[in-house]
Design a protein around this nucleic acid. Sequence first.
DNA 1: TCTTGATATGCAACTAGTTTCATAGCATGA
DNA 2: TCATGCTATGAAACTAGTTGCATATCAAGA
Lengths: 187, 187
Amino acid sequence: MMARVALEHAILVSLLEQPGSGYELARRFDRSIGRFWTATHQQIYRVLKRMEADGWVTAEEIDQDGRPDKRRYSVAAPGRSVLTTWLREPVQPESVRHELAVKIRGAAFDDAAGRAALLAEVERYRADHETTLHRYQTGEQRDFPDPGALDTGQRLQHVVLRGGIAYEQMVLAWLDDVLETLHGLGR
Amino acid sequence: MMARVALEHAILVSLLEQPGSGYELARRFDRSIGRFWTATHQQIYRVLKRMEADGWVTAEEIDQDGRPDKRRYSVAAPGRSVLTTWLREPVQPESVRHELAVKIRGAAFDDAAGRAALLAEVERYRADHETTLHRYQTGEQRDFPDPGALDTGQRLQHVVLRGGIAYEQMVLAWLDDVLETLHGLGR
DNA sequence: TCTTGATATGCAACTAGTTTCATAGCATGA
DNA sequence: TCATGCTATGAAACTAGTTGCATATCAAGA
């Protein structure tokens, strides 16, 4: 039993890369880690409590002046061994929840007004992905200016980021195809 | 409240395209619909019961000789109006759960043996995606041999399938990049 | 004959994830 | 001064999704 769990492992990786508070983790899940694993702050706080109780992570209270205190978490030895065990297990297929694709097929059962509304939504959605792509590309130039001079961890982070960039570029090209197809229905 | 729900909507679209039993839906979710929305047969049977109770779908008992009876579901008027309402709501960002990406970043905290094991997993994973791509391409040639002569529903299904193909091609190219990067760490 | 596998449906128990609400200090700008 | 927004954590209630088990028919092959 157990085996796929998942959020725990993403948190362990993130804390090994850089210890931090629940709040900081939530922001990372909105940014870098969130590219391939999403989580709300509620879930993160809950899972961190459980991981602390199980001895996978340790917490340190940090007084901050001007701001509320925070609890900085770090990975403990048992957490690290949980992670390495998990790393050697077979990779599960990625799971996709692509609402837009469902809506596009659903548009066949709506009228012209509905398809026009969908078209506008696709354009908004495209703009969001364009913003995301630019953010990734800016991050790449900032964090990996000299790809020849990276250590192991940085090279692995870089190849994952390149995956995010390739994904966004693919999505943008596909959305152009979708827009053209939706326009073509009207003719 | 309510609004994102989701599996219900994917089932409504699938049943509008073609009425069918829970079992048949589960197979479609393993194949075509499953490209962008996954669900187990348990979840599908449970949601179908609820949708039937809410009057979104109607069921018809079908006797089959040689096989167990089945219940064929069709979308009823209230279900159709639920769907069109949902179609006009803003599209939620797709949610990605990409375990492999977490493991790649995690590999920075494992030893050479762990990275070698990951490399083998990435190769197996790549073979799976190659199979998926071939299945999509075969399906495309079978279902859309003449892209000029398609009705609205088929054009929309086709553009979603092209998205699946573009996704698989992008994944394969990225996995080659990952393999090269993992090999490069050993040198 | 016996096993395996496909068709076909479902309950029960569990785990994961979301939403709503609450609290509290300080900074910034209108 | 007042509203807004960011930092920071959390409880409670709910919804969604997974896993394990159970059942039954029939076909195909060992």
